[in-house]
């Protein structure tokens, strides 16, 4: 396969279980991510959505090996990440942008030290002048004033702080960035600026994003494809427009019907699919399909086995036993 066709990131049967103390000397695995497989192509943006606690962030962090995967593998650019050397190589090409611009910047470091931290960790610049030059270049890239280099993070607004975080992520010239809800903590006007910046940077630098968010409109705007997660499992994966306009999984349908529509006339005519009950505890997940306890179409089959994650239409993957009956 040529590099053009080969996916940049390939996630195979990724599992991440956290041991939770449930009594004296007794631990129960919390299945934060349970058997998730997908690919991300070079230069594309994969949006990852789902409600709080469904394991989106854990997927992102496990791909970057911030948590050691319990099982499964991550293949980056054709090479599985197994040894320490693989990981060191991978760390030079991948990075992360965090949700909270307040806790993701060390309050005791100046902006230039924060941005240069990845450079210093990998010892990429030995000449202090070249390092300085690179810092100013990065600040310019994300629209920060170079006079701010010697300031501390607490002197900036949320949007500016997020720009500092993005500049830090760009420092090592990464190919792949995991964006963990990078705009959720910002107000709407700043969200637009930051998202457009992500778009521009992708065009300029040819970046590949895994964009985690719970705001469906943001994800639809920036993503090429959208993946929907529920309780540690992936339930649907499709092209952005397809997933947004023709969701096949009952959970995705409900999720997308909950997106607020900024036009009252259309909003009044569209029906919201309200789900019954709460999301079950991942410590005590239902047997079979995890969604069956809240699914209006659930039958006995759903309780027996986990539906396979299969391609129903071209490029449209769904994990549901009754997908054809529901949408037929």
């Amino acid at each position: 396969m040529s590099t053009e066709e080969r996916p940049l990131v390939e996630v195979k049967h990724l599992k991440e279980y956290f041991p939770i103390n449930t009594g004296w000397f007794k631990t129960t695995p919390l299945k934060a991510v349970d058997d998730v497989s997908f690919i991300i192509n070079r230069g594309e943006t994969l949006g990852l959505v789902g409600e709080s606690g469904c394991g989106k962030t854990t997927v992102g962090r496990t791909i970057l090996h911030l948590y050691q995967p319990t099982d499964g593998e991550v293949i980056y650019d054709g090479k599985p990440i197994k040894t320490k050397e693989d990981l060191t190589e991978f760390r030079k090409k991948s990075t992360m942008v965090f949700q909270d611009p307040y806790s993701s910047l060390n309050p005791r470091m100046t902006v230039s030290d924060i941005i240069a931290e990845p450079l210093d960790v990998h010892k990429m610049y030995t000449d202090p002048k070249a390092r300085e030059q690179r810092i100013l270049e990065l600040m310019d890239h994300v629209g920060l004033n170079s006079e701010h280099a010697s300031r501390y993070a607490h002197e900036f607004s949320g949007g500016q702080r997020q720009r500092i975080g993005i500049a830090r992520a760009l420092a090592i010239n990464p190919e792949f960035i995991v964006c963990d809800e990078p705009v959720s903590a910002l107000d709407v006007s700043i969200q637009a600026q930051v998202i457009n910046m992500f778009d521009e940077l992708q065009d300029q630098l040819g970046l590949t994003y895994l964009f985690i968010a719970h705001d469906l409109l943001v994800v639809r705007h920036i993503s090429d494809r959208i993946a929907v997660m529920y309780l540690g499992k992936m339930v649907e994966l499709a092209d952005a427009e397809e997933a947004y306009n023709h969701p096949l999984h009952p959970y995705s349908k409900s999720l997308i019907s909950a997106v607020p529509i900024p036009d009252p006339k259309i909003a009044r005519s569209s029906k919201r699919i309200a789900l019954q009950g709460d999301i079950p505890s991942p410590l005590n997940a239902p047997s079979g399909c995890p969604f069956r306890t809240r699914c209006p179409y659930a039958t006995d089959v759903c309780a027996e086995s986990m539906p396979p994650f299969e391609e129903v239409e071209k490029g449209h993957f769904v994990a549901c036993h009754r997908v054809r009956e529901i949408n037929g």
């Binding site: 962090r61 993701s104 910047l105 931290e117 990845p118 960790v121």
Partner: peptide, 10 residues
């Protein structure tokens, strides 16, 4: 998160 960010860079 800044410790996590540091870990993410290796």
């Amino acid at each position: 998160e800044y410790v996590l960010a540091s870990q993410a860079t290796g």
